[in-house]
Design a protein around this nucleic acid. Structure first.
Lengths: 109, 109
DNA sequence: TTGACACATTCCCATATAGGAATATATTGG
DNA sequence: CCAATATATTCCTATATGGGAATGTGTCAA
């Protein structure tokens, strides 16, 4: 059995670094394909293909404006990723608190 | 060019659902390979292979205890994932606040 | 209608999978 | 040393991929 498809879920879609680059770039503001091409210095077909993957898993939305296609991040689609990582984030926060605790007790000697 | 290797970074390593299952299972407590096999109902070689990937990217640590190998999560290795998703989490938190705001203004009419 | 621009799709290919099955390695107790 | 247990590795194969190159589709302006 090969690896799960890039379009099987958000986890697989964002495994590709260039797709993360794209998401980060359009996070603040919707962008046309060519703006992405110029900003990230990628080939246009490559950008279009990555956007297609991102769209299939719901990570981006599109609207047409004249000849341009304006892509924007669907932030909610990233939520499952954030929630999964958050369970671990709580753990290292605890670890850091314990370290801090020990340091304070030591300085009180 | 094929996809980036599963061992190229944490993002690629956790794209596989079974590896996320493993990480979640050993999150609370270190576990032997067979405990993982039993809990997740996977084949032992499969678990060993997944653990190897997780170890290569630093997501787990191991120690030997007699015949057993005890694996535990290296929570800090998940931090880059959490940080990347957090930039988007801030965005939907803002969105939710705006929705809440509008709702409150409406009820004050 | 035609040309130009913006974007999407198709074809090609080398490559890294994940699972299954079989086998290898390491550790312990007797 | 031997048998049993615990884990790791190897071999196999179908399959999805990302980039490059070329081409297709859609929209506007004149």
């Amino acid at each position: 059995m090969p690896r799960a498809t890039t379009t099987s879920d958000a986890f697989n879609a964002i495994a590709e670094p260039r797709r993360r680059d794209i998401l980060s770039f359009i996070a603040l503001q919707e962008r046309s394909v060519n703006e992405i091409v110029d900003a990230l210095e990628m080939e246009q077909p490559s950008v279009s293909k990555h956007l297609k993957v991102l769209k299939e898993v719901g990570l981006v939305d599109v609207r047409r404006e004249g000849r341009q296609m304006l892509y924007r991040v669907n932030v909610m689609a990233i939520r499952p990723l954030w929630e999964w990582t958050s369970t671990f984030e709580r753990m290292w926060r605890h670890q850091l608190l314990k370290v801090k605790d020990r340091a304070e007790k030591k300085s009180n000697l």
